[in-house]
Simulated assay, not measured.
Amino acid sequence: MNKALALAATALLAATPLHAQGMLDLSLDIGGGVELGPRYPGSDEGRTSPWVILRNGADADGQGFTISPSFGFKGGRDSGDDDALAGLDEIDRTVELGLRLGYGIGPVGAYATLRRGFGGHEGITGAVGAKYRTELSPELTLWSGVQAVYGNGAFNDTYFGVTEAESAASGLPETSVGSGFNEAALTFEARYAVSDATSLLGEVRYARLIGDAADSPVVQEEYQPSLRLGLVRRFSFGF
């Protein structure tokens, strides 16, 4: 985990989009908050957990083609979280590191991310999506979007699969989940600028498990809504 965090810090320092004038800009959003979401993927109960915000500041409204680091933090799964998990292996927290490709034209943006997990899962996950930006005032900006989440076999099997040993211990049928899209979501985000560098963030995500993931015996509820509230500070550097 410590190695993954060090890699994240290194990648952040490398997040320097090139402008047409030949100048280099580095823009980072760093902050934290609280998240209310499912206890684990497929859970029918919610829990409150920290929200770590670490991302390229240009991701939300970049114009033209952009490439930047992508970071994810995924909570663990403990057999004590739910009686339905009895007999299943525990999953540690995961740091995910990868890349984000984006394209923006006016208020519309499309993106694709791909990340590798370190910790609880060692698989590959990512998403494709699109957003529409609405500027309600100089301080308040809204984004509404759609998203589809992908996982390779290692990722999907970690959260939705049941091994032979787990099946014997839990009574659930042995299940193997291959690569593919596992979730579709509607997303709504808001950013309120308290100052030039500090903003309040709010995100609502209404997701539904799809494909083989939705059919997993581990899943108690296909619908997976979540809410995030946080405070972020933007650090910008020019070279």
Rank of each mutant, 00 (worst) to 15 (best):
T94M: 05
L85R: 01
F71T: 04
I105R: 15
G76R: 00
G80M: 11
A86E: 14
D78F: 11
L88C: 08
K74A: 12
L101G: 10
D92I: 00
D82P: 01
S68L: 11
Y103I: 10
R100Q: 14
R93A: 15
L97K: 12
G75H: 10
D82I: 04
E90M: 04
P107E: 09
I91A: 03
L99M: 14
L101T: 06
G75Y: 05
E96H: 07
R77P: 03
G104M: 06
G72T: 02
S79N: 13
E90P: 04
V95S: 07
K74R: 14
I91L: 08
G72N: 03
G102V: 09
G76H: 02
D81Y: 14
E90W: 01
P107C: 09
I105E: 12
D89R: 13
L101W: 10
L97Y: 06
Y103A: 05
G104T: 08
G76L: 02
L101D: 08
Y103R: 08
D89T: 10
G98T: 06
L97I: 14
L101P: 04
G98H: 00
G98I: 05
D83M: 13
L88I: 06
D82C: 10
S79T: 10
D92S: 11
D83N: 12
S79M: 12
D92C: 08
E96A: 07
D78A: 15
F71D: 03
K74W: 11
G75P: 04
V95Q: 07
D82V: 03
A86C: 08
G80H: 12
G80Y: 08
G106C: 09
F73P: 01
G87R: 07
S68D: 11
K74I: 12
D78C: 05
R93D: 15
V95K: 00
P107L: 08
G104L: 08
G76Q: 05
L85T: 00
L85S: 01
G106H: 05
D92H: 09
F73T: 04
G87W: 03
R93T: 13
A86V: 13
G76S: 06
R93Y: 13
G102L: 02
